[in-house]
Amino acid sequence: MTTTSERTSPAERFQAIIDADEKIEPSDWMPEGYRKTLIRQIAQHAHSEVIGMQPEGNWITRAPTLERKAILIAKVQDEAGHGLYLYSAAETLGVTRDELVELLHTGAQKYSSIFNYPTLTWADIGAIGWLVDGAAITNQVMLTRTSYGPYARAMVRICKEESFHQRQGYEIMLRLCNGTPEQKAMAQDAVNRWWWPALMMFGPHDSESTHTNQSMEWKIKRISNDDLRQQFVDMTVPQAEYLGLTLPDPELRWNPERGHYDFGEIDWDEFWQVVKGHGPMNRDRLEHKIKAWEDGEWVRDAAAAYAEKQQARRAASRTGG
């Protein structure tokens, strides 16, 4: 009997799976570059979810109502959950959780720059849900079709929950925009500060994005940075109009020929500054993360010691000792 595996090399089988739009699974052979690219991307994604708890956690104690507080806690808990799904997906590629945590803490692996901006007012919680989670959904809906099975499955789960995040954010904005002039001004101020960083989330222009081509060939990424950014702008402009808010871009206008909104150029100097660690909150975010990890060490140790003791006790009772 001649089987497919006898006729073809592992590399050919890998390519055949990619070409057929099927998923690569953890035990399949994969090129080293594919594995490394995925570890880097999934780890960054996981780190982003975990660090992303901080700017929002900042407002839990000051949420305007008990209901808003409960909602915000649920959202922050979701972000922790998303981080866990993603760490699990990364671990299927042969890295350990502890290694990933350490790489975040030493700065060897990064997280999304969007979390290096501060949350100054309650309206920022609305703007983050609407714009930042909106941008994230645009990216993540694409990633539900990524070629690596565990990553795609994590994305499906995450996308279901992100929808709640975005809607609750938009509702906060809606409430503020229908409120007092001061409340509306606060909403406008938040949009002024979050609009451009949200657009930066999609990354450099396609022409500058050196690793995009390979990722597209491997079908890790299915849509380019600029195309995703355009999708996000087209989706968001009418939502801003409904709120009666102005997006802070004088060049933003509908282009009937393209069938898309034209928009101005991102401040790429700011973009690279924040990526390189010089954003307003880079240092605080990492310091806080490391402190939380170190403060929790006794809990982890106690849980491990307890588990060990229980196991020893069970073993002893089995042998009648």
Binding site: K36, I39, R40, Q41, Q44, H45, S48, E49, G52, E79, H82, G94, V95, T96, D98, E99, L103, A108, Q109, K110, Y111, S112, S113, I114, V132, D133, A135, A136, N139, Q140, L143, M155, I158, M201, F202, G203, P204, S209, T210, H211, V275, K276
Partner: peptide, 21 residues
């Protein structure tokens, strides 16, 4: 939230598979 951070000049791939993890 999602997004992959662009590569910086001189970025190195971390080494994985440490046994002391």
């Amino acid at each position: 939230m999602a997004y992959s951070v662009p590569h910086l000049d001189g970025e190195q791939d971390p080494q994985f598979g440490r046994s002391d993890a």
